[in-house]
Amino acid sequence: MKKFFMLSNEEIKRSFKLYLSILTMLVIVELTSVVYQVLHYQSKLEDLMKKERLTEMEAVDQLNGPLTFGDATNYFKYMIAIGIMFTILYAFQIWYRDWYGESKYIYRLLMLPGKRITILLSKLTTVLVFVCGFMGIQWITILISRRLYEWLLPEHLQAASKIIGESAALNMLYTFNVIDTFVILALALFVITMVFLFVLTERSYQKGKALLTIAKDVALLIVPFIALRYLFDLTSMLIPNQQVFVYLSFILIYFIYISWKCVRLLNHKVSI
């Protein structure tokens, strides 16, 4: 356990500044975008009123109504996409930096006493903690953005909406149901574990064999899924709820398989 905490802290320490920088940048960009959207709307309104000699109500009508919070936070989806991209790239980098960094830290890691699974778990924990941080900070940014929106924009120019507005991306991430947050984290865990598997496979075999092995593992996910779908469509032997149960069970089994494979590669196949 101590080794796990020490390794996790080490991993977080190595990316600490980068992570905080990206978090800060995302927050600043998002808040700036909200201010920009609000001021831009007001400026368009004023322009319309001046040029076409309209009342404010008429000008608002021409602009398709008041500025919604969804419109004000329109750029958030790009920041969320950047956050997701960063996470996936980081999941690769957290391994490759140990092989290709200025020092061969992977030697040190693999020679540490105790089980090698701790290395895997510490890296997994690090990426997941970063994901949780992204989600949490994004939530706080939404709250601050809401305050900004309400403060900068006169009330009659605001459209009534729920706290996260109408943005599809935000509504998908923040359903206010705790179970959904864990579903999202479970999905993140699955994707990160897949990335880890690709890295460890590449580090365990020669190029050609590594590619084939990765292709095989991807096929092991996709082919049975398609086959099940085809089987259910053809035979209808299970009702939809039962089908969903089978799909979910398959995903769970596959997740256990890729986790087991990661551990196995790390213990027996990975080469420096």
């Binding site: 977080i12 600490f16 992570y19 978090l23 903690v129 970063f130 949780c132 941080g133 989600m135 949490g136 900070i137 939530w139 706080i140 923040y174 947050t181």
Partner: peptide, 12 residues
């Protein structure tokens, strides 16, 4: 980092 994640998510 854990506190950032924990506190913000707990707030949510």
């Amino acid at each position: 980092v854990g506190s950032i994640a924990g506190v913000t998510l707990l707030s949510y």
